[in-house]
Each structure stands twice: as C-alpha cells, then as structure tokens.
Design a binder for these strands. Structure first.
Length: 854
DNA sequence: CTGTAGCATGGGT
DNA sequence: GACCCATGCTACA
C-alpha cells in the first residue's frame, strides 16, 4: 500500500491533484488498481484520516454502533474501515476486531480482467490455503454471503475481492493477522481429535457455545491462514450486533456458492449472513472423509468437493426452523428424492461422498442405526448401510419411508441433511421442490411451467419447455405437486442425470389419448393444402414440410333446435361457446372469434352452458383421478384448458373421444416427416432408393400397410366389443397396473391374436363400416415394438402415471425403438412381411404398430 | 402371492 | 474407463 513509485503522476485524490514524481499506493480501485496518492494524501489514508481530511463535507458519514466513531461509509476510501452489521448500522473495524468478526463488506464484482498481482501474503498463504481447501474434500460448508453468489462466480475464476487485500492490510494494521495466521497446534490437535471419536463425529467443540459467543469461538476455530478449519455454520444470535454482516438480499435467500469458488476466492474470514456466521472451511470433522483409527475414509475422489446437486441449498428460514436459536447448524448435503428413494422400498440412496463424509464410518454391510431428527424434532432411526457395488459401495439409508411421508415428500423433493450443534445430531429436513429458492450457479428446482428456471440450464429449461410444449400451460394443479424438474447439476441434472425422472414427469401428464382423438385434433396448418390419397379405401391426408396444427377440440352437441353444434372453449375466459358443428375451430380461439353468436363474442358474456350440462358433456372428468378432485372446481379446471396439445391432452383426459370434433375430414393425418419418422412414406423401400409412396404404390411397404390396416381394424373392432363387455373390470386392471405404458398413448390389445389369414380375408367394407377408425390410420409405423405392451393395456388408451417402472419401461421402449430404428431400414422388408398389429399413437399422431406374430 | 433384501445392470458423468 | 447411482431383478422370507 505504501509502495513508492517515481513516476510523475497526479495524486488520485480529487481534492488534492498534486503532481508528484513520488506517489504511494492508496486504496484499491474497482479496476483492481490502486489509487496513486501523493505523499501527504497517502499518509492521511494510511492513518485512517483520509476521509476526515478530504471528505468532511461529503455525505455518507455514519457512526460506529459500538464506539460511535464516525466513518465515511459512502466512500471507497473508507470502504474497509467498517463492517456492516446484520441489524443495520456499521461498526468500525476496531470494534469489529474486538468481536473477532472480520467479515468484509460486500464489494463490487471483482475486476476479473484487471487483477493486479496479489499481495504476497494473500497469494502465498491465503489463496494457496484456500485453493488447497477447495480441493481437499467435501465441504460441508456452502454458505456464503450474497457477495459471493451475486454475480455468478465460476469456480476457477481467480477472483480477488478488493477487500481481500485491504482487509488483510487492515487486519495487519490492527494487529490481527498475526493472531489469525497463527495456526495453533492446540487447535489443530483438537480438530484432529474431533474428527471422529468412536465412529461418531464430534461435530464442533462444545466450547463454541459455552462462552455464549459463537462468533468469537468460531473465529478462533477458523484460523484463516491455516488449512485446517472447522466449519461452523453458526447462528450468532447474541452477537449479531457485533457481527460483520453481509446483508442477505432476502430473508429467504439461499446462501450458496460454489465451494471451490468460495474457498478460492473468499477471504479467510467468517461471514455473517442474516444472523448466521458463516465460517468457511474446507474441512470439517468429516470434510476429509471420516477418519477412523486415524485413517481417512473414502477414496481420493471423496475428497473432492461435493457435486453441486448435493450441496445443501438450505435457506435461512430453513436453518432457523431446524436449529432454532443459539444453535449451530451445519448443512451437510441434500439430495433430490428419486422415484426409488421416495418409493415404498424406503431406501434412500445416499451419495457416496456424502455418506462417507458425513455419516459414521461403517465397515460392514449391515451398517448401523442412525439417529436422525427431522425438522419437527421427531426422532427417527434409519439404518445406514451400504451394498458392495462394482468394487465400490452404495450407501443407503433404510427405513426412511415414514420420515419421508411425515415430511410429505415425494420424488423430486429434496431431503436435506444438516448437523446440529452441539452434539452433532443429524437433522433431516425436506423441501418441496416447488418451493425451492433460487440457487447459486443457476441451480434451481423448477416447477415445470413456472417461470423459475435455472439460468445456466438451458437444457433443463428446454426439457421443461418440451413438456410445456406438449402441455401448453398444462394443468397447474397437476404440475404443482408432480411435475418437478430439478434444474440440473453441472450441465443438466434433469436432462442428463434424470432422464428417467424426466420421462416420469412426462408420464405424469396423465395423458389418455386415443390415436383416434389425436387424429381428430391434427390438421394441416392454414394455407396448407394437404394432399390426399386413398390406400385401400383409407383416405390419407398428408402435409409435409410443415408442422401440424392441433385444432381446438370441441364438444359435440345438439342445439335446442336439433341442429348439430359444437362447444368450444374460449382460450381466455374458458367459457364454452357454441359454434356450428362443421366449423373448424383453430387451436387458438377466443370469444372474440365467435362470429356465430355475437352476443357471446366477448369474454364478459355469460356462458351458455350450465355446470350440469358441461358435466354431462364431460362425464369422464369425474372419473379421472385428477379431474375428480377438480370436478368441484370447474372454473379452475376449465381455466387450465389451453391451446394446442395441452387442450388435446386435456380433452383426451376428459374422455375417450367423446364428442371430439375437430376435423372436418375423416382422413388420417400425417402431418410431416421428420428425422426418425417411420411412416411408410419416410421409410423408403428396402433399397432406400425408392421415391415416396403414392396412393397407387404397390411396394411392400404399402402392401403391408394395407394389410396392417385391415388387421388394425379387426383388432380394434374386437377390442371394442370386448371393452364394452368388461370395461369396468378392465379399468380396475388398468388402475392396478398403474400404467404399464408411458405418456405415449399406445394401443395394444388384449385380444387373442387373430389369424393373419382372417385379416387378409376380412372384407374391406365390413372393416370400414364397423370400425370407428374408418379411413383413419396413421402412416407412422413402428413395427418393431412387441414386448412393450402389456396384454392388459387398454386398446387405444393408456393411463400414464408416475409409478416407478412405467417410466423406465417407457424409457426402455424408447431405447429399443431407437435401436430398432437403426436396423429398421435393413429389416423393414422382412419385418413388414411378418408384422401386423395395432398401434401406438404418440402425441403427434404417429402410430406405432405393435408387432404381432403372423 | 407379496414384500423385502441384496445384488446387478446400465446410463450418465 | 472408472465411478456413481437410479432402478431393475430375483431369491427369499
């Protein structure tokens, strides 16, 4: 700071402007450079009298809450002369020193690109130390003041806060650095002995609380210039007015930062946020992995920092809820409950590193019982154990189901593990995914459909958007509790890690949709004239190179005058309006579009339908589990009727094609061909050189298609007959099975295989007349699927649920499809010659035909 | 037949 | 390619 230079410069002090060949270093500027001061100004600065000398008439003076000394708060010069108190006000550094709370003030974003060299001490000691800490193990300390996670800090950014240097200087000036840099052997020894005793961690020295001054003891425990810190996340209740505060921007702010970044960037001081004192530490008693018999547990990897997804994202409120007053809480880690975690098995798979770092050491697979207290104070005993797994271990916590249920957690929610001081009691908390606060590094838990999203997780967002794109606005009621997407891990948690979960979430769409319904809702976009052709009496409508339009579904009805009409729901007010039956209602339709009833061409107009009438029209609403609970809230229910596929989905839920009238033409729609499309059009003949199929094409594909179509008709006909006979029992089966399928609507049959010959010989006319799918067959064929379909799956409709297993099955189905597709072109000829079946309709109306013998 | 415990599998990192 | 871990599988009670 007092370095001299002989370069002729003007004093940086605007009130001085002396030119001098000799200048001295003053305060650190935002650029990272130092203010060059003339000798007198530098002296004033170093004496702490700069502002008193030059800024007496400036505003921004405040008094130290403790000693009353005036400090020029509004000045960069005095920026490091004071600390912000949690309760407001400031404290001069001298007083702050007395309370051993050395949290620097929040600073501006560090000048990444203008970083001057670090003062040697900081570089050599502090930074190395912290750098070493960052890589030294799971860091059960993640809290950091907002200053660290305001601007996103990358872990490897060599950030240097301005206060780092100056603070150390100040500390030096106040004679603190000596003390702080003194790594007491006693303390070290104490820490070592604390790490683990008898397999149980001693988590924090009792004396932390004994003197009633957590902050004080914490400071002594946290020698900033040693690499051996004890992490204490303490609730500095009594000394809050003496704590250096870094204001938390919000009460519920999550205090989080990449550990490595914190450790590598933050000054080695404890930090208070709210009422908490955050004492950074790379290691706690377990940070290096638990030590048993003097030997560190865990492999080398376990000493790496926790994966972001396991870093506790606990909030102040949660901490307060957990710890109460005068207690220290050390957030350890957290984990999003997977389907299996939250399942009936009651096993929570613990992240290995976390288990080894924070839980007692276990040497036998049987493990040991672990007393855990939930946030309500209820004691639980879990069995902490492991399974050998690939030369490794897989740690699980058994018997968590009651606790999970007690906390009303489910898959997607988060369980948190913290440690309560004194005593080191494990605290298990829970967080509903839908209430997760924003997290650092863009890690958030999102509720699909909400605006909350992780900024750094485009993929996750996209995935969410994918779902949204299907759901449109999707039913919030469904989403609220079910559709929870964890934002991501480093790249994308949900996208990469939780593919199953994602699929499961998609399953949660509870989308019951027959492909007949899908077909009726698909149409060519405006200005697009679909080509049509007839194959074996089946009229196809094809519009390539454009996205299909999902028409707005409507409910068929008959006017009081006996005229056929359809009821269409306004997109804005959700009132149902009557339009002529032959009208093609666009997917986006509002009352203002109601040209047929001008009296009801405004949303303010009353609805013509009574609730009873509507309920009659939507009888299935009361059958559906979801809609059942919503049936009493018709408005709320209707309010979620949305455009496009969302509406499609909703309508599909509401009934199996009841009253759906969206297409004016009874054609099979084949919207567009995309990569992966397996329709007969996209599937080139085995030679792969053929042109697209025309209506008179007699290639093997088209021939097979015709054959399939007949079979489809036959099967559906049989299925319908059978359904009408045993629908009730069948529904029970479906419920019991909890959906063998997926969000892909699938048609399968529980009908015995019909001999192929009969298919081929089936009179065409009979099929056409008998089948409700006359003239409707999608061209998308996935002939490979055979093992996917439960014989108990309903024909043309499938219920999807979040049941574990269904998603996985679907996932595997998808994988198998992919694999099959890669072989498909080679095998298509043979396959088509052999296959028959009824299909699977996905949301865009593609039909995958179930392979069938014969 | 059902539930559970323990291991195996395989996608993801 | 090793490791993690979600979940499937299966023997067993």
């Amino acid at each position: 700071m007092s370095a001299m230079s002989s370069t002729m410069e003007v004093c940086f002090n605007s009130n001085c402007k002396e030119s001098s060949e000799k200048w001295r270093r003053g305060w650190r500027r935002r650029t990272g450079e130092y203010a060059h001061l003339c000798d007198p100004c530098a002296s004033a600065y170093e004496d702490g009298k700069f502002c008193e000398t030059f800024h007496t008439n400036a505003s921004g003076w405040r008094c130290c809450e403790s000693c009353g000394k005036q400090i020029h708060c509004g000045c960069i010069v005095s920026f490091h002369m004071f600390v912000l108190l949690d309760a407001g006000g400031i404290e001069c550094l001298t007083c702050a020193k007395k309370s051993y709370i050395l949290t620097p003030n929040p600073a501006w974003p560090p000048p990444l690109h203008f970083l001057p060299s670090q003062p040697e001490r900081m570089t050599d000691v502090s930074m190395k130390t912290w750098g070493a800490l960052a890589a030294s193990g799971p860091v059960p300390w993640r809290q950091a003041p907002s200053v660290f996670n305001g601007p996103r800090i990358q872990a490897n950014d060599q950030l240097k806060m301005p206060f780092e240097i100056d603070l150390s200087d100040r500390i030096d000036r106040y004679g603190l650095s000596e003390r702080l840099s003194m790594a007491s052997p006693e303390i070290k020894q104490e820490r070592s002995s604390e790490r683990l005793a008898n397999g149980k961690m001693r988590l924090g020295p009792p004396e932390i609380l004994q003197n009633g001054n957590i902050g004080l003891k914490v400071k002594e425990q946290h020698c900033p210039f040693t690499s051996d810190f004890k992490p204490i996340y303490s609730r500095n209740d009594t000394s809050s007015n003496r704590s250096l505060g870094v204001a938390s921007s919000s009460k519920n702010e999550t205090i989080d930062a990449p550990i490595s970044s914190i450790l590598s960037q933050s000054p080695p001081v404890s930090i208070t946020v709210g009422k908490q004192v955050f004492s950074p530490s790379g290691l706690d008693s377990s940070g290096e992995g638990q030590i048993l018999n003097g030997k560190s547990r865990g492999d080398g990897r376990s000493r790496n920092q926790l994966l972001p997804r396991y870093r506790p994202q606990i909030t102040n409120e949660e901490l307060q809820q957990i710890s109460g007053d005068l207690k220290c809480i050390t957030p350890l880690f957290e984990k999003m409950l997977s389907a299996s975690d939250a399942g009936r098995i009651g096993r929570l798979v613990l992240p290995k590193k976390c288990a080894e770092a924070y839980f007692p050491s276990i040497n036998h697979a049987e493990g040991l019982p672990l007393n855990v207290q939930d946030i309500k104070g209820k004691e639980w005993v879990f069995q902490f154990r492991f399974w050998p797994n690939n030369n490794s271990r897989m740690y699980v916590l058994e018997g968590i189901t009651p606790c999970i249920q007690s906390m009303q957690l489910q898959a997607g929610d988060v369980v948190t593990f913290s440690r309560l001081e004194p005593g080191g009691k494990l605290i298990m908390g829970g967080r509903k995914a839908s209430v997760v606060p924003s997290l650092d590094q863009g890690e958030e838990v999102n509720v699909i459909g909400s605006e909350a999203s992780s900024p750094g997780d485009a993929n996750a967002r996209n995935k969410s958007a994918d779902i949204i794109s299907v759901n449109g606005h999707m039913k919030e009621k469904i989403l609220e509790d079910k559709l929870v997407i964890p934002a991501k891990r480093k790249n994308n948690y949900i996208n990469a890690k939780s593919k199953r979960l994602r699929i499961e979430n998609e399953d949660m769409m509870e989308l019951n949709l027959t492909y007949k319904e899908a077909q009726k809702l698909i149409r060519a976009p405006a200005k697009t004239v679909p080509s049509s052709f007839v194959v074996d009496g089946c009229e196809f409508e094809e519009f390539e190179e454009c996205e299909p339009v999902i028409g707005r579904p409507a409910l068929l009805g008959i006017d009081h005058s006996g005229e056929k009409i359809q009821w269409v729901q306004c997109e804005d007010c959700f009132k149902w309006r009557k339009v002529p039956a032959n009208v093609l209602v666009p997917s986006k339709w509002t009352c203002s579009d109601n040209a047929w009833d001008l009296h009801r061409s405004m949303c303010s107009s009353a609805e013509e339908l009574t609730n009873e009438q509507l309920e009659q029209m939507l009888p299935a609403m009361n059958k559906d589990p979801i809609n059942k609970e919503e049936s009493s809230e018709r408005d709320a229910d209707l309010s979620v009727a949305v455009e496009g596929l969302d509406t499609l989905a909703n309508l599909a839920i509401q009934g199996e094609g009841k009253g759906l009238v969206a297409s004016s033409e009874n054609r099979t729609k084949h919207p567009c061909h995309r990569p992966g499309c397996t329709c007969v059009v996209c599937l080139q003949p085995p030679s792969r050189k053929g042109a697209k199929h025309g209506h008179s094409c007699t290639c093997v594909v088209c021939t097979s298609l015709k054959h399939r179509f007949r079979t489809l008709m036959e099967r559906l006909e049989k299925k319908q007959t059978e359904n009408s006979q045993g629908q009730q029992s069948h529904e029970k089966e479906l419920d019991a099975d909890a959906c063998v399928g997926s969000s892909t609507v699938k048609c399968s049959s529980n009908v015995e295989e019909a001999p192929n010959s009969s298919h081929a010989e089936e009179p065409k006319g009979r099929i056409s007349s008998a089948s409700p799918l006359k003239g409707q067959i999608d061209l998308n064929i996935q002939p490979e699927r055979e093992e996917d379909f439960s014989p108990r799956s309903d024909c043309g409709v499938v219920k999807c649920s979040s049941q574990p297993g269904s998603s996985d099955r679907f996932f595997r189905q998808q994988q198998q499809q992919q694999q099959h597709r890669s072989l498909e072109s080679d095998m298509i000829g043979n396959l088509l010659a052999k296959q028959d079946g009824v299909g699977c309709v996905n949301i865009i109306g593609c039909v995958a035909l179930d392979k069938e013998s014969g």
